[in-house]
């Protein structure tokens, strides 16, 4: 970390570190979901729907992974400078994105059954 501002309370530093790790875990879970969706047998979903759902999950996973490290640094910088924490503008994208995939997958499961 660049030495600027004051060393923050270690509890804040550790909380920031855990949040970073949670972003990475979220990204891994989304990737696992995307791979699982793409690896489904061909007769479970319509192929293009299955691929579209998998792509959405992997794109969300990529966003989470790409954001994680820069955000960790930004938050740490804000803590050192005792500034407000940066906003997470993409939070709704993750919430609605995962919810949309889940609802669509549920509808397809019900229709196929």
């Amino acid at each position: 970390m660049p030495v600027e501002g004051k060393e923050p309370d270690p509890r804040f530093t550790l909380a920031n570190e855990r949040t970073f790790l949670t972003w990475l875990s979220t990204s891994l879970a989304l990737s696992a979901g995307g791979v699982a969706m793409a690896a489904l047998p061909r007769d479970v979903f319509v192929p293009w729907v299955r691929t579209a759902l998998a792509v959405v999950l992997v794109v969300l996973s990529g966003l989470a992974a790409a954001l994680a490290y820069p955000r960790w640094r930004q938050v740490q910088r804000a803590l050192r400078q005792e500034k407000p924490l940066p906003r997470l503008a993409l939070a709704p994208v993750f919430g609605y994105g995962v919810a949309a995939v889940a609802v669509l997958a549920l509808i397809l499961i019900v229709l196929s059954g």
Binding site: E17, V55, V58
Partner: peptide, 29 residues
């Protein structure tokens, strides 16, 4: 001061590799 930048970068690299592998798999499956 606490500094885990090396481990954080390693974890980040690993997750980016998973995302790249998943993207390749999904597009080529």
């Amino acid at each position: 001061p606490l500094d885990v930048r090396a481990d954080a970068l390693l974890a980040w690299l690993g997750v980016l590799a998973v995302v790249a592998g998943a993207a390749a798999f999904v597009l080529a499956a």
